[in-house]
Amino acid sequence: MASDGVVVEIGKVTGSVGTTVEIPVYFRGVPSKGIANCDFVFRYDPNVLEIIGIDPGDIIVDPNPTKSFDTAIYPDRKIIVFLFAEDSGTGAYAITKDGVFAKIRATVKSSAPGYITFDEVGGFADNDLVEQKVSFIDGGVNVGNATPTKGATPTNTATPTK
């Protein structure tokens, strides 16, 4: 695992066909100046998982989280898009600690492993708008004895992609 920078880890949970599971997305290594904004994309298989919603985690402190935390689910493109932009203008609602960034709610549709993997990152910046190093650890849903650990090695991303 990367020793510096922010680590975004997609949790690994267990479920069975027809059940709804909650998959946490963790941030670790949050910089001392916090995270003022970030955007990134995960990939998944809508034939295996139906993403039914995404909720902000406990490290989102904006009293009205829909102003700073936004997501979009595109089953036709097989992606989930995340956007966080601190909304106070003063840094008061920045992410300042490690913990759960988001909770992905999904219904298991198939007995195949439900991988959720890193696809791309736009950027991560602290309260001074300084770009942060970030790496990703894939996860998803274990169905029966299947284990979604494909790509469990962190993917280092030093520069934003478009």
Score class of each variant (00 low, 15 high):
Ser135Met: 03
Ser16Val: 07
Phe124Lys: 00
Tyr115Trp: 14
Lys109Thr: 10
Gly5Arg: 11
Phe40Val: 02
Lys12Leu: 05
Gly91Leu: 03
Thr66Leu: 05
Asn127Cys: 02
Asn127Gly: 03
Pro63Gly: 15
Glu131Arg: 01
Val21Ala: 06
Asn47Met: 15
Thr90Met: 09
Ala125Gly: 03
Glu86Ser: 01
Val7Cys: 09
Thr14Cys: 14
Val7Pro: 10
Val100Met: 13
Phe42Leu: 07
Ser68Met: 13
Gly53Leu: 08
Ser88Asp: 03
Asp39Gly: 00
Lys162Thr: 04
Pro113Val: 07
Gly53Lys: 09
Glu120Gly: 03
Lys150Phe: 07
Gly57Ala: 12
Asp39Val: 00
Ala106His: 09
Lys103Val: 08
Val141Trp: 10
Ser16Asp: 04
Asp39Lys: 01
Ser88Tyr: 13
Thr71Glu: 01
Ala106Arg: 00
Leu49Cys: 04
Ala92Thr: 10
Pro63Met: 12
Asp126Tyr: 01
Ala85Tyr: 15
Ser3Gln: 14
Val6Arg: 08
Val130Ala: 07
Lys33Pro: 04
Phe84Val: 01
Ile59Tyr: 07
Ile35Glu: 13
Val6Gly: 07
Phe27Asn: 15
Gly15Val: 08
Lys103Gln: 10
Val21Leu: 14
Ile10Pro: 06
Asp98Trp: 04
Tyr93Val: 14
Thr66Lys: 05
Val41Pro: 00
Val141Gly: 14
Ala112Gln: 11
Glu22Gly: 06
Phe118Glu: 06
Asn64Pro: 11
Val61Gln: 12
Val17Glu: 14
Cys38Thr: 03
Thr159Lys: 13
Val108Tyr: 13
Asp45Arg: 05
Tyr44Arg: 02
Arg77Val: 04
Thr147Ile: 12
Gly11Ile: 05
Asn142Val: 08
Thr71Arg: 05
Ala2Ser: 14
Gly122Met: 00
Thr96Arg: 12
Phe118Ala: 07
Ile51Ser: 07
Ser88Met: 07
Val13Cys: 04
Val81Gln: 00
Ile52His: 07
Arg28Pro: 10
Asp4Gly: 04
Thr153Cys: 15
Phe136Lys: 04
Ile10Glu: 05
Leu129Met: 03
Gly114Asp: 09
Ile60Pro: 11
Phe118Gly: 06
Val108Thr: 11
Tyr26Ile: 02
Pro46His: 09
Ala85Asp: 00
Val143Ile: 14
Val143Gly: 10
Asp70Tyr: 15
Met1Lys: 08
Ser3Met: 04
Ile80His: 10
Phe118Arg: 04
Val141Leu: 13
Ala94Met: 08
Thr14Phe: 12
Gly122Arg: 00
Val81Met: 01
Gly57Ile: 03
Phe124Asn: 00
Pro63Gln: 15
Ala72Phe: 00
Gly99Pro: 01
Ala158Met: 09
Thr71Gln: 02
Ala85Phe: 15
Glu9Trp: 14
Glu22Tyr: 06
Asn37Trp: 00
Thr117Leu: 09
Lys150Tyr: 08
Ile52Phe: 07
Thr155Trp: 12
Ile104Asp: 01
Asp98Gly: 06
Lys97Gln: 08
Thr107Glu: 12
Pro46Cys: 08
Gly114Met: 06
Gly15Phe: 05
Ile116Ser: 09
Ile35Met: 05
Phe69Asn: 01
Ala152Arg: 11
Asp4Met: 03
Asp119Lys: 03
Thr20Asn: 07
Arg77Met: 02
Ala102Cys: 13
Lys133Glu: 05
Thr117Asn: 11
Ile95Gly: 02
Asn127His: 01
Lys78Tyr: 14
Val81Cys: 01
Glu9Lys: 09
Gly123Glu: 00
Gly57Tyr: 14
Asn37Cys: 15
Thr157Ser: 11
Thr157Gln: 14
Gly122Pro: 00
Gly91Met: 15
Phe82Asn: 03
Ala112Phe: 03
Val30Gln: 15
Tyr93Asn: 10
Ile79Asp: 02
Asp138Lys: 13
Ala112Cys: 12
Glu50Lys: 15
Pro31Ile: 15
Ile52Trp: 03
Val130Thr: 07
Ile23Leu: 11
Val17Pro: 08
Val48Trp: 15
Asp138Leu: 09
Ser32Glu: 15
Phe136Ile: 04
Val41Met: 01
Pro154Arg: 11
Gly122Asn: 00
Ser16His: 09
Val6Phe: 15
Ile60Ala: 15
Glu22Val: 04
Ile10Trp: 01
Ile73Thr: 08
Val30Leu: 13
Asp128Tyr: 08
Ile59Ser: 12
Ser16Glu: 15
Ile79Tyr: 13
Pro63Cys: 08
Gly53Asn: 08
Gly15Ala: 08
Leu49Ile: 04
Tyr93Thr: 14
Val108Leu: 10
Thr153Trp: 15
Asn47Val: 09
Asn145Val: 15
Asn142Trp: 08
Asp70Arg: 01
Glu50Tyr: 09
Thr96Tyr: 10
Ala106Trp: 07
Val81His: 00
Pro65Arg: 13
Val121Ala: 15
Val81Leu: 01
Leu49Asp: 02
Ala146Cys: 09
Asp55Asn: 13
Glu86Gln: 01
Thr20Lys: 14
Thr149Asn: 13
Thr14Asp: 13
Asp62Lys: 14
Gly34Cys: 02
Val108Arg: 11
Ala158His: 12
Thr66Met: 05
Ile137Gln: 13
Lys103Trp: 13
Ile51Tyr: 13
Gly91Ser: 13
Val8Leu: 03
Asp98Val: 04
Gly29Pro: 12
Gly140Pro: 13
Asp126Pro: 00
Ala94Leu: 04
Asp4Tyr: 07
Pro148Ser: 04
Asp70Gln: 15
Lys103Phe: 11
Asn142Phe: 07
Arg77Glu: 03
Thr155Gly: 09
Thr157Asp: 11
Glu9Gln: 10
Lys109Phe: 15
Asp119Thr: 09
Thr71Gly: 00
Tyr44Met: 09
Gly151Glu: 10
Val13Met: 03
Asn145Gln: 11
Phe124Ala: 00
Ala152Leu: 12
Glu131Tyr: 01
Val141Met: 13
Ala152Asn: 10
Pro154Asn: 11
Asp87Met: 15
Thr155Lys: 13
Thr107Lys: 09
Gly91Tyr: 10
Ile59Pro: 07
Gly15Leu: 07
Phe84Met: 11
Val81Pro: 02
Val17Tyr: 14
Pro75Gly: 05
Ile51Arg: 11
Ser111Ala: 08
Val6Asp: 10
Gly139Gln: 11
Lys103Ile: 11
Phe42Tyr: 02
Pro75Leu: 03
Ile137Phe: 13
